[in-house]
Amino acid sequence: MACISCKTKTKSIIERLFVMKNGQEKIDLLLECNADEQLKNVDWNKLNAAILNQLDEAKKYKASVRKHPIVFKIAAGVAAAAAVVFIAVMIKPQRPVDIKLGEGRTAMVEFIGSKGSASVAIIEPSDRAHAKVNIAGQSEKTANCCVQIIDSSTGQKEDVNRPSWFIICMSEYTNGNNGINRDAMDMLYLF
């Protein structure tokens, strides 16, 4: 199929094929034909006037920047500062604050102990609070864990006296590299 972009399409292509330059291909001709068709109706004087008009606007802007450099610098500084604040707010990690029993949030705290049965106490539940773990009377050992406080009243509203649940998930990095120990080990305690 010949180039349909030109009204005199077939003739145009055939004529062009005769003057095809070295290395030029049909696809080049098609692009050339389309570009020529597009440029055929361009009013160059109008385009020139439009460019010069835009340049006038740019010149005014340039002049005002030169005239009031401090104002522009302050404006740029304010904009930059606002952008920095915005970015800082956006990338701030979502950390739980002031966790209370029953809110179902998660906090990272250090806990003391090792694998085995334990009694757990939570002191001032928040992201900075400590979970005190006493493991079978052994000496205290430190490891990282994830403390999750679950709202036990969800779906159990008829029992208002139902206690909250407290879960400690052992970090896999602190708990061996293979077998069942690779998975986070959950310990569930009932207050």
């Binding site: 361009v42 385009l47 439009a50 460019i51 835009q54 340049l55 606007e57 740019a58 010149k59």
Partner: peptide, 12 residues
């Protein structure tokens, strides 16, 4: 045409 106008302003 729009791109060329902006290009010349940028160049200026």
């Amino acid at each position: 045409a729009e791109t060329v106008q902006n290009g010349f302003v940028n160049a200026y």
